[in-house]
């Protein structure tokens, strides 16, 4: 079955969407991401949509769902690289993706996630210093 690959980058997951997604593929991605977050205990998810030429309400809702599910699993979601024309269209359509964090590119997205993890997990890191790894 066709799947969108999910890359693991340390405590984060990276998804680069490069195809015009049909609805089934979008739903599969949502399920796959959910299980990978649990599997690796990931603290953040980066979704790179810079290659997406359009985001309709279905894909928009999928992004919002992923963010909500990830939130419950204690992971932050950052959608990166949205094209200007896509952003204008989404706003006109009435979808502002509340609850989804955004960044211009993957690099800035990683910085955002690092900052979020640092502010929420600073204490834990000290405790874990000589634990696993």
């Amino acid at each position: 079955m066709e799947r969108i690959p999910i890359l693991r980058m340390g405590q984060f997951l990276l998804v680069t969407i490069q195809v015009d997604m049909h609805d089934r593929l979008a739903l599969t991605l949502q399920e796959d991401l959910t299980s990978r977050i649990t599997e690796h205990g990931s603290r953040g998810v980066l979704i790179d949509i810079s290659s997406l030429e359009i985001v309709d309400s279905f894909i928009g809702r999928m992004l919002a769902n992923i963010a909500s599910i990830a939130r419950v699993l204690d992971a932050d979601t950052v959608v990166v690289g949205m094209q200007p024309a896509v952003a204008i269209t989404l706003v006109e359509l009435g979808l502002s993706l509340p609850g989804v964090r955004t960044a211009l590119n993957v690099e800035k997205g990683v910085a955002l996630l690092n900052a979020a993890v640092a502010s929420s997990g600073a204490m834990l890191e000290v405790d874990d210093a000589d634990g696993e790894d």
Binding site: M82, P84, V86, V91, E92, S96, L97, T102
Partner: peptide, 12 residues
């Protein structure tokens, strides 16, 4: 508000 929202969607 639309302009601000669109910029936010892009990460600014």
């Amino acid at each position: 508000i639309k302009t601000v929202t669109a910029a936010r969607l892009m990460g600014a």
